[in-house]
Design a protein around this nucleic acid. Structure first.
Lengths: 217, 217, 217, 217
DNA sequence: GATGAATGAGCATTCATTCAT
DNA sequence: GATGAATGAATGCTCATTCAT
């Protein structure tokens, strides 16, 4: 067995081209030839560097989820010294920016996650369990302080995840139909405020944010 | 020359199998042979009845969007006699139930919509324009009555669409990770209430819903 | 076994469409669907009336060769009372006109004859033997009177057949490159004179046609 | 991206098998599987080396016409120092030998030329224009010296082309019915003399060739 | 007489991958 | 490290034909 360098111009070329094509046409809609052509390398290199098309997929998923989860994990660790709401908001903020900077991967990953391929299932299942664990921690921490108890936690998380992923999944639609650009800073700032509002509504019991000013009941 | 019957057991067999496989493996991940095998018919029939794999796709999209949009359109027509909030809520309610009953198509369609295929683009572009138009009508009608003006309409719609589609796109995750079942009535009822809350927050200016009871500021 | 009418509007429709399509795209390049579409009938009728695509081919070949050979046969019978040269010329004249009137079939048949299909071989072999027999009769009759003996008969026939079939085989080229139209009377008249000259040269020993006037050596 | 070697054993294997099968069964009557089987290679290689079945066709046509036309072009260039009759005869001689050595391609090409396929039209149209130009040059050069003016040039060329191509188009018939073998030297020598006679008759005004000896009028 | 449904074999092509170099 | 040749399976689709109606 030969050892393959962790990074080489050819390898990163391939990876970048793959992400771009997966973003546009999906995993099954992209052929290794397409990737090799775009990267201007020989198709054999894909097998050489990534152990096949599937390996390419795994690399993408690992890269994405490793970083994505790190933002959640970091805030879970800060729960001891900080309010849950602040931790939650900070993780939302960081995840949004991370996805904005990696919007190609974000769309591709979240789309592919919705496919029942055994391969994908195996790659992502542990990531999704971690995601669940972290999100639950953050919300439950909040609940034991001052959150609306009545709401089942799963629903909140569904809504949160919806808001976190949707702009990237439908980036093209947003661009073409709504003239809004998910990979621009301006959008992310605005959009973050939306989720912030939602968190406030969700978490706060006695206070309400209306039109940006706090109203103490 | 040849006129093909609008519906026959074989044809509906194919369609149902296709939807199920597209739901699981995506359009590109499904072969016509897979579909024919599942439907227990000859692969040629797919070309015969649907003019190829692509025709199958178009049929699915048309069926889905035609009905999906009908719920929006109907409420737009009712804007004259009814409050915008009520119309919006009713369309949300109907769409959720429609998708819950057709959760296979819903996931498949919303996933595929995020793919940059010229084919798909051509099919859906006019549907998406209609969707934009109807949603805009509903929200703007509300705004001219009592809604928060400051919020750009596009952001509200992104959020609304997120909430409308996400549970179906990630149905499998919801099932496996959160033990929540988007095609069950119980889930839909609960989930509808969530969006209802969000609409209340969005539209109402002077009133706030907290814990289910109205608080007049 | 049902008896099928020798001719019906549907049947002759099919035949005509088939000839036209075989003329353009060849036998293998034409599908029964193409034929049925052009004839605006159901494809099943082709099997019904002609016992399949191959039967269509046989019908065409039989029709063509039956008539084509009749012109040769007729002149062979006239050899007793008429000069061989005159008989030969008359058969050439008649064949040219026959092919001119049926130029679609002529091109199709002569092209297909050059294909090594067992099917075609079986259909045409007896026709070609008859053709050989008649042509040989005509030329040998001439030789026993006043023809150039030295020339092997096979070469003469090759040349004669070349001249008889070429304008029809390459009709489209003639039209597009040379602006000459093999199915017009004008062309046939002119072209016939060419072959007449060639026959004169071939047969006559003591006389030579130069510039149209006879020169007695 | 990928550069394919101009010739490899596999590639030439494919080409040779293809020519042989096209010769026998025509282009539409031959499948890539047939070719691959005969060449004992994998069918994929045909697409790999020739960019599909059509590419194979183009390669054949280009090879044939390039060389075929070279014989005409060469003689056109010699018109300055040589008599038109000699140039014409030499080109006929060379073309006959070329076709005799490549009788498989010759039959296939001339047969396929008579098919109205857009693909074939595009490949050959420029070749046919060149052919027309060269032949016209050769005949017109002769006319401006001592040729029969009365005869329209197009008819002469039709006859010439008939004689040049017919033995190869109908090679199989010639073999089976006339026991004459177009790819044998003996036949070509004899047949060339025939055409030589025809050229003499065509070009010479004051002299006539009868029985091989010149007769000055 | 004539139709549309349905079939199974076959079509050209593309796929991801392997391997010798 | 990287390439091009080569493979075998799978792709979507069209084929001529049959059959019940």
């Amino acid at each position: 067995m030969r050892d393959i360098k962790l990074s080489s111009p050819t390898k990163s070329n391939i990876l970048q081209s793959a992400i771009s094509l997966f973003y546009d046409h999906g995993f099954d809609g992209t052929s290794v030839r397409d990737i090799a052509n775009k990267a201007k390398v020989n198709p054999s290199n894909i097998s050489y560097y990534f152990k096949g098309k599937q390996g390419l997929l795994e690399t993408c998923f690992n890269r994405f989820f490793e970083e994505y989860l790190s933002f959640l994990e970091a805030e879970v660790h800060k729960l001891e010294h900080d309010s849950a709401a602040d931790c939650l908001k900070r993780s939302v903020f960081n995840i949004l920016h991370f996805q904005s900077e990696n919007y190609l991967m974000a769309r591709f990953v979240w789309r592919e996650v919705s496919i029942d391929s055994q391969v994908i299932r195996e790659i992502i299942s542990s990531y999704l369990m971690k995601e669940k664990y972290y999100m639950k921690m953050l919300l439950e921490a909040g609940m034991s302080e001052q959150t609306l108890k009545k709401q089942p936690i799963s629903f909140s998380i569904i809504q949160l995840k919806s808001m976190l992923t949707m702009p990237f999944l439908n980036s093209q639609q947003l661009r073409e139909v709504w003239h809004v650009f998910p990979h621009e800073n301006y959008f992310i700032e605005q959009y973050y405020r939306q989720i912030e509002n939602w968190i406030d509504m969700l978490l706060v019991n006695e206070e309400v944010v209306s039109n940006g000013k706090l109203i103490v009941l």
